[in-house]
Design a protein around this nucleic acid. Sequence first.
DNA 1: GTGCAGATATGCAATGGATGCAAGTACGCG
DNA 2: CGCGTACTTGCATCCATTGCATATCTGCAC
Lengths: 202, 202
Amino acid sequence: MSLRDRKRARTRQALIDAGAELFERQGYDGTTVADIAAAAEIGTRTFFSYFASKEELLFPDADERIRAAEEAIASRGPDDGPADVLLRALRTSARDTDLLSPIAARRIELIRTVPAVRGRALQIQLDAQRVIADRLAEAFPDRLDPVTAAALTGAFIGAVTGALQVLLAGPGTDAQAVRTALQTATDVALAPWQHHTSRNGA
Amino acid sequence: MSLRDRKRARTRQALIDAGAELFERQGYDGTTVADIAAAAEIGTRTFFSYFASKEELLFPDADERIRAAEEAIASRGPDDGPADVLLRALRTSARDTDLLSPIAARRIELIRTVPAVRGRALQIQLDAQRVIADRLAEAFPDRLDPVTAAALTGAFIGAVTGALQVLLAGPGTDAQAVRTALQTATDVALAPWQHHTSRNGA
DNA sequence: GTGCAGATATGCAATGGATGCAAGTACGCG
DNA sequence: CGCGTACTTGCATCCATTGCATATCTGCAC
């Protein structure tokens, strides 16, 4: 990696960190892009050459996750069915720190409370869903037509999202509750597609 | 309805119509709120006492639809299970003109092409999903815990959304294709919950 | 009909995100 | 070293959105 690339990566991370801290301290709306740029010691204008919008700062790894999910689909085993593949994609792209680490908790809080952030999060999710549905249809051309693949993917992601939404709306949530909810959601969505009941470890 | 209310309703409709025409003619981003307000003959500032944002103009009946869905759940028959109730809610809140009328087609086009509009549409959908999940859990307290109700609702709406997304991404779509896709989506999401296969007429 | 209280409408100014443009500056490579 | 390209940045601008103060209108009571 060249100096230029290293520098750019460092600045990018500085922006992410500065954003996280300022959002924590002053709230999302109480923090301006100018604040964040100043904290990372770059010009305000330059912020937008790193992130297309203020919201993007909260989802810096969206692309990687989608790639990870695609990778999980591509590297499926010969006996895996659509349900297995979706579960693998979920486990691969959603790390277990995603719901319980303090940083993640604050992100979820922002998704819940700031409309602009929620809107962006949902868009990212829908984009991911489309990609996964395409890959899934490609992976099982005999068993899944494109519409069915999209419906199945939508059902899977929708179930997980819905379950987490109610779960996280309540008070303090522990790791075990998250696991149970995920198991419930994946069972609901995938029941007819699973040969044998599988354990969920995400 | 008082004069005041009638006047307000008329202005509101004028804004919706003006928005639809201007978006059609100049594009969404090419139309400013000031343009819309002027076309409806009100002050720019006043626009925001009718709609909280420019995007809201495209979803003027979101509240009614959610109420309609709640009503559909409340008025369920004694033999209806969760799957029947969700199907009724869908048929009630989504009119068949929603996907095929020219006005609706343009709205869908905007949802697909304008990020801000897509974000708002998804938020409205998620809000509706939460309400429906709550009502569903209340309707079947013995059979559905809150998390399962949310997962089921999410799977149902997610499947429909996913299927429509791929379907509408393709070229010209006719009524029959929409019906088939909806049938596919609801089957995928509700298969284990349906006693007997039901016909879908939405 | 008159007048008051509350709801509406509007203008003005300010804030803040986002973008185009035109220099300026740094980096990679020959 | 020297050039071409990529990255930064300041500046001006556009536009959505909001607070505030003011003017206007409507519903209702007397």
